[in-house]
Design a protein around this nucleic acid. Structure first.
Ligand SMILES: [Zn+2]
Ligand SMILES: [Zn+2]
Ligand SMILES: [Zn+2]
Ligand SMILES: [Zn+2]
Lengths: 161, 161
DNA sequence: CTTGAAGTGTTACTTTGTATCATGTACGGA
DNA sequence: TCCGTACATGATACAAAGTAACACTTCAAG
């Protein structure tokens, strides 16, 4: 497994073998849950798959309508609970700016600090590793949200040719 | 006017002369709007005052109920429009984690990068100056959101004695 | 004064998120 | 094996947050 280069353009903004990217993340999720004892139930697993397949942020109700179509649940709490579980386990993240959720491309079990790059044109979101920003001593940080809105390389270069 | 020391405990977490802090910010807002030609109308001015007086994040509907009580408007769009104006002018900020708004304590006209420290115990929020975090080159950042949740000094020290 | 742009009032919705209680299901100990 | 407990799901019924659209008013520039 190669370490991510924090300088490089994130994979999300480039063409890539997405099926592979989904199966890798699912495998990682399975083994993390097995290890921690967390129960990756059918609904939860399917929600994670839906997020991974979408490969973009999805609202809770978007996820829910997928679940509903598949007979896995039709009421909001079903989706919110599964998403809450995934976020708690570090398998997905909530994008505050979008009221949406996205699968973590490199779940690690730890509660890693990440920054999200949100392209306002194509809607793609990339997760990049990040350090907690320097903050005044004295405030005891427990969780940090970093979200940047802007234009990805593709959208900045060729604005709808 | 003294420059903020990025290391010091933010004013918001300490006792301070709040009336003064309100009048300063209002004066700054007035002159910024005069300068830029933006129209600080009665509703907008009052919303800014409400935010400043509250000195804590307020939901749009919290603000709205204040406006309503004063006969300045009772329908959601009134509040959202005024808040939108203030955010556009850099006189207030939206706290994504809280779906809430807070007045900027040091409005500068420019669209400054700030981090928000959110105490999960007492609900106080401090705005501290911050640099945009290091991100991969290639993504054209236009706006950055940085929000940290945790415990302020007071709440970390004396947990509800 | 006219006129157009910006601001406000209001209706009627949409979207997002939860509290609560009932029901089901896995799993370890008696 | 049977039981109890903990956790997960199902379902109802709301609460909270946000917006589209349209009519009307205000205000400043020409
Ligand atoms: Zn992929
Ligand atoms: Zn893009
Ligand atoms: Zn500010
Ligand atoms: Zn506190």
């Amino acid at each position: 497994m190669s370490k991510a280069d924090p300088e490089a353009t994130p994979r999300e903004f480039l063409p890539h073998d997405h099926a592979h990217c989904v199966s890798d993340a699912m495998a990682a999720a399975e083994s993390l849950c097995a290890e921690s004892g967390a129960r990756l139930t059918p609904v939860r697993r399917r929600v994670l798959e839906i997020l991974l397949e979408g490969h973009r942020p999805m609202g809770a109700y978007d996820v829910l309508s997928r679940l509903d179509a598949e007979g896995l649940g039709s009421k909001p709490p079903v989706a919110y609970r599964a998403l809450g579980f995934l976020v708690d386990q570090g398998l997905a993240h909530r994008i505050e700016r979008l009221n949406a959720f996205i699968a973590c491309p490199h779940p690690s079990g730890q509660d890693h600090v990440a920054a999200f790059l949100i392209c306002r044109d194509c809607g793609t979101v990339a997760e990049v590793p990040s350090a907690p920003p320097p903050l005044p001593a004295g405030f005891q940080v427990e969780q940090t949200t970093i979200e940047a809105v802007g234009l990805c390389t593709a959208c900045a270069d060729g604005p709808a040719t």
